[in-house]
Design a protein around this nucleic acid. Structure first.
Lengths: 231, 231
DNA sequence: GCGTGTATTTCGGCA
DNA sequence: TGCCGAAGTACACGC
């Protein structure tokens, strides 16, 4: 990994065109050849970058560029597309290289899969008498997160999201349409369960007769008996 | 901006829990207090990070940690939530600080907004006699990109994408269903306009009576009289 | 390899 | 400020 701090400008062409005016920035060249261009703010996203696989060619600036104060030019070309990032470096403030080795990677916990597991175990949160049929109930267009039965024996298809957006309603709608063709299951009721449901998603869901349920992750985790296995 | 290369492990708790085993990584501390933890690969996304606003407290490791080889502990706490990132540093390979100043930021060109603006100005690309009603025509489930009238006075709802995928067809279908309930507008015809339309999207659109239109960005830009303001 | 669905998404725009 | 949709989305998992 090479770290360079320099005054620079940059130009990207590929899926869009973008330009970065002259300013001092951090340039990171990773071992796989990818390049990140970071400012001193924003968030984790670089101002500009090139993803691997790509290769970088360093060249001497032409006369015109030298006159503008350019000391070197980096041309980073993506290996499989026309994506191209050109960086003109002016003063270089810092330049160092470091050997990092391969990273063991991140271990995660607490994403949608956990919500699904916990709701499956606490299916009565949807109402007294609800019973689990199975998680990841398979259909022709993909698995339904949870299939259950309510106290009257009616089938309930549940779509789970961390953030309930409008596309989740579409997803559930497609499942419901398919499931309702199965005479063993029909009629199937839909439940959209999420930690947070956007107003527009709620409107669309309600319009289609889908019930919205808010999930309280902390409360569910508190009564989750498999909690202990996490870490 | 502070750059540190060090052998470290990390623990994140917040919207999820995550752990990073001991390895050598780049740690970037930005001027706004945010912290990035990068490996020598992956992509532009850090292995772990803390977004601003947040604050970092450096402390001396306890006896137990010292025994594990920890030389310092960074506790990064988000200012507005419970998000917390703890980093245990072992050997520090590199440590430098740099003043970068405020970045002028990225200037983009060629995104969906440009396509929309240009098509609104060149609405006759859809056929002679087409007139613009308005851009971002509001509905209960979100704004339609462009609403127009054709030469016969019929209403046309236009969905614009850079890359025409299947979800854009779904989106337009929802709008059409809603708009067709409005007696002042009905019947409303749908047009799916994109620089590139995926075969599956084209099939679905055609099946639903939606017209597909390919947008030639370069050609549209050539006749765009506000072109001069870009860059 | 491609398609699908998630993400500590981030980012910008508009009400 | 909050909500909503786009992103050079990236990324993992399924087939």
């Amino acid at each position: 990994m090479r770290l360079v701090v320099a005054r620079c400008s940059a130009h990207y062409t590929g899926r869009l065109s973008a330009h970065l005016p002259l300013a001092t920035r951090l340039l990171v060249v990773k071992a796989d050849g990818s390049v990140l261009l970071h400012s001193d703010g924003g968030s984790y996203k670089p101002l500009n970058w090139m993803s691997p696989p790509c290769s970088m060619a360093v060249s001497v600036p032409d006369e015109d560029a030298v006159a503008r104060g350019v000391t070197q030019v980096w041309a980073v070309q993506h290996a499989k597309s026309d994506d191209r990032l050109e960086i003109e470096l002016h003063e270089v403030v810092h330049d160092s290289s470091h050997s990092l080795g391969i990273d063991p990677g991140l271990i995660k916990d607490g994403v949608e899969a956990h919500l699904q597991a916990m709701l499956a175990e606490q299916i009565e949160l949807l109402g007294t008498g609800h019973t689990l049929v199975r998680r990841e109930y398979p259909t022709a267009i993909g698995p339904v997160d949870i299939l259950a039965r309510d106290s009257t024996g009616g089938t309930v298809a549940i779509e789970i999201k961390r953030r309930g957006d409008i596309d989740g309603v579409e997803q559930l709608t497609r499942y419901l349409e398919l499931l309702n063709r199965d005479p063993h299951l029909a009629p199937v009721r839909g439940v959209y369960a999420a930690q947070e449901i956007k107003p527009q998603a709620r409107v669309l869901a309600t319009d289609r007769g889908i019930t919205c349920v808010l999930l309280d992750y902390a409360a569910m985790k508190g009564t989750d008996d498999v909690d202990s296995r996490l870490f």
